[in-house]
Design a protein around this nucleic acid. Structure first.
Length: 275
DNA sequence: CTCCAGGAGTATC
DNA sequence: GATACTCATGGA
């Protein structure tokens, strides 16, 4: 297996990046990870200032790797602008954790599956959807399955969606397949405009919309507030503050500014590993 | 058995 | 705009 190399000029923590709950299509393989992203299936491992990867299926190249792992985000500059001592300590702990730029459609399916669930189950649900309804790809490592495209998903009956074990989320996936946003246009819109479009889809609320914007559409100011982040904010950033998730999200966006999503991801990862 | 989970829609006030 | 109830399933 011949590995290509990307030289890292900024801090990177591959382990924290893939395991921080923003992306579900990965698994441990040897010293690194196997990753699925659209039609691509690749292996990646990290050693100091070098990221090595090998495309098993698809067409990943250095530029795609840089884009996917957010390697051009200047983390030190982003975090330097925040004066919260607690956030600084979290940054020192996970320095190099980056926001992945995953596929918007796959991200939407994933985070609709995520509501009122948990990471192991979300991962399992996504795999089941891919295995039953997605395109099979033969690779040297065996068969892998793409997530179904909107067209493929629209051919699946509501009963068959329920049968995958996604529960009440089945009806939202059913609707999403028939009312898929034009994700391409959302990247160039401003945050609130793009969010309004996402919120028009049944099953996409405040939190899921912010996840889609942050994890796949390069809107780094998005600040998804779930139960974990709510606890994290109330414990570490705004002690004792009450309010709805939407109110806390607005509060956090105002406090952290244009790259608020990065603060969110570090706080989420820290909350999930310590609380 | 009951309770709750990376929420969101709907009804009701 | 706030609150209560509901939605499926699975794990504790």
């Amino acid at each position: 297996m011949n590995l290509s190399s990307v030289i890292l000029q900024n801090p990177f923590d591959l382990d924290a990046t893939v395991s921080s709950g923003q992306f579900f299509r990965w698994r441990i393989q040897g010293e690194g990870y196997l990753i699925q992203h659209r039609e691509n299936f690749f292996y990646v491992e990290h050693h100091n200032d070098i990221l090595k990867y090998h495309t098993i299926s698809g067409n990943m190249n250095d530029a795609e790797i840089r884009r996917f792992f957010g390697l051009d985000d200047n983390l030190d500059a982003i975090f330097q602008r925040w004066d919260s001592p607690f956030l600084q300590s979290v940054y020192r702990k996970y320095r190099g954790l980056r926001l992945i730029r995953q596929d918007p459609w796959e991200c939407t399916v994933s985070f609709i599956c995520s509501m009122a669930s948990n990471i192991p189950r979300i991962t399992r649900n996504i795999h089941t959807l891919a295995k039953r309804f997605g395109t099979v790809i033969q690779t040297p490592n065996g068969k892998i399955f793409r997530l179904p495209t909107p067209t493929q998903l629209a051919r699946v009956s509501l009963a068959n969606l329920y049968d995958t074990g996604v529960g009440f989320r089945a009806k939202y996936l059913y609707g999403l397949a028939r009312n898929t946003p034009d994700f391409g246009s959302l990247q160039s819109m401003d945050y609130s405009e793009a969010k309004t479009v996402l919120l028009s889809v049944k099953g996409i609320g405040e939190k899921v919309a912010d996840c889609i914007l942050l994890f796949s559409l390069n809107h780094l100011g998005a600040f998804p507030v779930d139960t974990w982040i709510k606890k994290a904010l109330q414990t570490w950033i705004f002690p004792g503050k009450t309010g709805s998730p939407a109110q806390l999200a607005t509060e956090a966006r105002n406090y952290f500014g244009e790259n608020a999503g990065y603060a969110q991801q570090y706080l989420f990862h820290h909350a999930r590993t310590t609380l």
